[in-house]
Amino acid sequence: MSESMRIHHHFEIRWGMVIDIDKCTGCGACVVACQAENNIPPNPDPFDRMRDPHWLIVYKLSNHKKFPEHDTAYLPRPCMQCGNPSCASVCPVIATTKDEEGGIVSQIYPRCIGCRYCMAACPYHSRVFNWFDPVWPEGMDKTLTPFVSTRPRGVVEKCTFCHHRWQIAKEEARKRGENPMHLDEQAYIPACAEVCPTGAIHFGDLHNPEHIVHKLARSPYAFRILENLGTEPQVYYLSRRDWVRKQGDNHFRQEEKKNS
């Protein structure tokens, strides 16, 4: 990536997620929590991917070996909130940017024209397009989260690290007379991290040494997906298994020789 393509932003806070793949059982609770929290309509046909505007999805990894060496792993994939977001640089209407403190890539639905350049640009497939207007079965509209706006047909949406929870946490900190820019680790947690039964998803400020993610992201077992692209994701993964870490990136043949 050329230097001119890089978006240089310095944020005091850099919200990050560290997902321990070795702890993930693939139960899918994070996916359900995400859908309920972010007003994602229920899918009448779960096999119809066009009708499934998932923000968070769990991928199954395999080492492609026969028993007894066979091994699997599960990889939950939210939006990576890249340091150099390829979606933001291609958006023709500035509906998606990375300009706010915290480093969460924004997505403004009324501004989005639905051209889907960002979907083509995102190397993580974190973005989904609304082909249909959302439909909630009768009575289920009462379960909608009031802090998250609903999206009409024709716009792109993606994971926001439950950004509204940060806004709520800042309000609470202000009420208590605390500094809203220096939140406690437990004050702001996305729905997926909160619900994870094995505690595989850690969340916090990567710049704040008091937060566990600060330490975990610097672990020798930490890696990011497709790091070679230079997107600088704010989502880190942990695994003690070599084959899992190796699948995190597509290496050129000459690089593989160097690494092995």
Binding site: T97, D99, E100, S106, I108, S149, H163
Partner: peptide, 10 residues
């Protein structure tokens, strides 16, 4: 003050 989109939009 910041005029970032996500300061006021959700």
């Amino acid at each position: 003050t910041s005029n970032a989109c996500y300061l006021c939009h959700k």
